[in-house]
């Protein structure tokens, strides 16, 4: 299995993603510079990492979505390639229109950096298939614009089609208002496109995947991908 990690100017979780994929999971992993618009067909999965690409100027992801690599990412998505966008990567995929909805500034207007609990809504995606349904994953969040928004019609369509992958929940997996860190509609923490080959998530699975750290819940996302690609 071969993975690519896209690097934009201002990406800062790229090395964490690369480390987990290559050194912890033992996958062949390459960097992809944002100026490179060559086909991505050589990869089994492509990760858009977190960070502050282009300084988050105008809106997070608004400028990065026009980087040459995004043409290749869009072609890859249309062919069914697996794409995982984490944090800023999620914001870029939304701006590019590869995922439904948008991310607003957190309800508190503050940058939030803390561990949260999320509950797995569906296991019928390549990104969650190794999880148990309703499993609770403890994952760190670190963002200012993570307040997920979509209009009612879109939300209904996503619910009908199983496109909500993770919701913020309490430690017991209950989706409550108190467990919503940023004001996301329906506590949504991760979504997929209609075809389920593109996933975007605000929590950072790569920051909870190295066994040097006691929490490795984030591995579930990467393991799911590995299983899906192997099958």
């Amino acid at each position: 299995m071969k993975c690519g990690v896209v690097v934009f100017p201002g990406s800062n979780c790229d090395h964490d993603c690369y480390h987990i994929l290559k050194h912890i999971l033992g996958l062949s992993t390459e960097w992809i510079w944002h100026k490179d618009d060559a086909d991505l067909d050589r990869f089994d999965a492509v990760v858009l990492p977190g960070g502050f690409s282009f300084g988050d100027y105008l809106r997070p992801g608004a400028i990065s979505r026009f980087s040459p690599v995004m043409k290749a990412v869009t072609r890859y998505a249309n062919k069914g390639g697996h794409i995982l966008g984490i944090c800023n990567g999620f914001q870029i995929l939304l701006e590019a229109g590869l995922l439904p909805g948008a991310l607003l500034t957190n309800r508190s207007q503050k940058f939030i950096c803390k561990p949260v609990a999320t509950v797995v809504e569906t296991t019928e995606t390549p990104f969650t298939r190794s999880c148990k349904k309703n499993a609770v994953l403890k994952l760190p969040i670190a963002h200012k614009q993570g307040n997920y928004f979509a209009d009612t019609e879109t939300l209904q369509r996503m619910a009908d089609n199983g496109q909500v992958l993770l919701r913020y929940a309490d430690a017991a997996g209950q989706v409550t208002e108190a467990a919503n860190p940023n004001g996301s509609v329906g506590n949504i923490a991760a979504v997929a496109n209609e075809r389920k080959n593109v996933m975007g998530m605000m929590p950072h699975p790569e920051r909870a995947a190295d066994p040097l750290w006691p929490n490795v819940d984030g591995q579930a996302i990467f393991q799911s991908l590995i299983e899906s690609i192997a099958s």
Partner: peptide, 8 residues
């Protein structure tokens, strides 16, 4: 294209 995100 750029200045507004018409979703929001």
């Amino acid at each position: 294209k750029l200045l507004a995100n018409t979703v929001i």
